[in-house]
Design a binder for these strands. Structure first.
Length: 232
DNA sequence: AACTTATCCAACCGCCGCTAC
DNA sequence: AGTAGCGGCGGTTGGATAAGT
């Protein structure tokens, strides 16, 4: 393996420690469990192998399908993708992608898959948010509508979740969308007095002058991006 | 049977954001 | 405001095993 493999005894010690003290406080786990492992190794071993209800074995067809869709939406955000696959870990999903899908699916195949599903829905193109982690610093963020959105108003641009609602000073989440698209759209934009009421417990407001949508409350942007999948 | 190559996947590494001080 | 410590994440590594020659 890539590193020193865990022994049965080590697994036992770790499991007993978690049972006794619970998850979290990983910095204390090696000491509490009497393990000669770093906090990260303990956490990883627990999350990827020892945790209850972990599904092992090959991925079902539906799971693979979902991985492809979610990867299209979320990029390499394996923990988020894994969150939508009960019993699967981020490492599992990542490994599966790297071993199977990234090789078997060339870009054109992935594009075809997207076209058949949710990426071109009612003329609204959902772009993959595969932005760099230092997106805000490198591009100045999206506090102003990006030029591309103005030039291509039919696009909806999901911003990076990291840029949204992560601190009190963060601007509210926004979607840039053309007003005609908004006015003529079927779900996912359920309109009511200028507000957009999806089935996600969100209240989105369309600002026609700015050409953007904005939420009136804090909500999980990752869930929106993921749940767009469910609107199909 | 022996060797080489490809594949799989558990584990490690380095970085990031958050929080407490 | 600056910093250290922490949890968490994604990328990469490398050993085991399967498949091919």
């Amino acid at each position: 393996m890539g590193g020193v493999a865990w022994t049965e005894e080590e697994d036992h010690l770790l499991m007993r420690c978690i049972e006794q003290y619970g998850e979290g406080k990983w910095h204390r786990v090696p000491q509490l469990a009497g393990l000669n492992r770093c906090r990260k190794s303990c956490r990883l071993r627990w999350l990827n192998y020892l945790r209850p209800n972990i599904k092992r074995g090959s991925f079902a067809e539906e799971e693979v399908d979902l991985i492809i869709k979610l990867h299209n939406l979320l990029g390499n955000r394996w923990s988020l993708i894994a969150g939508r696959l009960p019993g699967r870990t981020a490492n599992d999903v990542k490994n599966y992608w790297n071993c199977h899908l990234s090789k078997k699916l060339d870009p054109q195949q992935i594009r075809n898959h997207e076209d058949n599903d949710l990426n071109t829905k009612d003329g609204i193109e959902i772009l993959s948010p595969s932005q760099p982690r230092d997106f805000a610093a490198s591009s100045g963020g999206w506090t102003q509508p990006p030029t591309a959105a103005l030039e291509a108003p039919s696009s909806v641009h999901p911003p990076m979740p990291e840029e949204i609602g992560t601190s009190p000073s963060s601007p509210p989440p926004m979607l840039y969308v053309d007003q005609d698209e908004f006015n003529n759209s079927n779900p996912p934009f359920f309109k009511e007095d200028g507000h957009v009421l999806g089935d996600l417990g969100m209240d989105l407001h369309f600002d026609g002058s700015a050409g953007l949508m904005q939420s009136s409350n804090q909500w999980d942007w990752d869930d929106l991006i993921s749940d767009m999948d469910l609107w199909g």
